[in-house]
């Protein structure tokens, strides 16, 4: 049985469609990434998965529980970390954790083993108010609170946005550890470098899934050869390349331009490189 089965979900706000016919399945114990720009519909999807919003159409099964009928039971088995830091700023670290433990009718002591790795980082500051923590520590506290009731599924909506690179790396290490304990994790991120750390990812844009696969397969699906062109004057370089009739696509990527060609057999002196998920994503959007 799949941990999560999503079948043809649609959702609109007033007349604007936020999600269009989304379908996917998540295996037990998988890290499933949802990758897409801001406004793509990631948060709406999370709110539907966490029973906070009702989909306009389609159905969702969590195990064999129905998301509409059995929402009460479902609320007991998932942990949720919203995109924004949503803990009590005026409560201390320990008070926040204890509060969320009792919200789920459990205690910190009972489930300490699950959160130990994460919570140990912030335990020295447990008497500090949550509002006074750094971004990375806030994120660890939020994750501890989301885990305190031993959820089967963990929903993380952009957990690393606004967090420093070191904390981001630590955070993904923690997710890997949780993954090893058999927790199914659905995580969204706008960072492509985090995408490769997921077992499978879905690329989302404008409320639609463009593709779902493992990161390796998505990269393999890149249909063309990809070249990088470097230059000092980026706007000029972009313009020149776009004026070139043989160039199929061209966009700036860090300090170089990534291009694909219409006819790859013609001789050229561009440097061929391995595509990334971001390259694939941009190609899909074209």
């Amino acid at each position: 049985m799949k941990a999560l089965t999503i079948n043809n979900i649609s959702k609109s706000y007033k007349k604007k469609a936020a999600l269009k016919n989304i379908s996917f399945e998540v295996d037990k114990g998988e890290i499933f990434g949802i990758i897409g720009p801001d406004g793509a519909g990631k948060t709406t999807l999370f709110r539907i998965l966490t029973t906070l919003l009702l989909p306009d159409s389609g159905e969702i099964k969590v195990g064999n529980l129905d998301i509409v009928k059995d929402y009460k039971k479902i609320r007991e088995i998932f942990g949720y970390m919203p995109g924004r830091f949503s803990l009590y700023h005026d409560l201390t670290v320990a008070e926040n954790l204890e509060f969320f433990a009792s919200v789920f009718s459990t205690t910190v002591e009972d489930n300490y083993d699950l959160i130990k790795d994460i919570y140990s980082h912030i335990e020295p500051f447990k008497k500090r108010k949550a509002g006074a923590l750094s971004g990375g520590m806030k994120q660890k506290l939020a994750l501890s609170c989301a885990l305190i009731h031993k959820p089967q599924i963990l929903y993380l909506d952009e957990p690393t946005t606004g967090v420093d690179p070191v904390s981001r790396k630590e955070f993904w290490q923690m997710l890997k550890n949780l993954h090893n304990q058999g927790i199914t994790i659905i995580v969204s991120t706008p960072y492509m470098d985090e995408a490769v750390l997921c077992d499978r990812i879905a690329l989302i844009n404008n409320g639609e899934f463009l593709d779902i696969d493992t990161p390796e397969n998505l990269i393999k699906k890149f249909p063309k050869k990809l070249y990088a062109v470097e230059g000092d004057n980026m706007p000029k370089l972009l313009k020149e390349l776009r004026d070139n009739e043989n160039v199929y696509s061209c966009y700036s990527f860090g300090d170089s331009c990534h291009i694909t060609l219409k006819d790859e057999t013609l001789p050229n002196n561009y440097k061929e490189i391995t595509p990334t998920i971001e390259d694939y994503f941009i190609l899909l959007l074209k």
Binding site: T50, R75, F78, Y80, F104
Partner: peptide, 8 residues
């Protein structure tokens, strides 16, 4: 949002 998504 967190409280509503909880069993409380």
């Amino acid at each position: 949002e967190l409280l509503l998504a909880s069993p409380t």
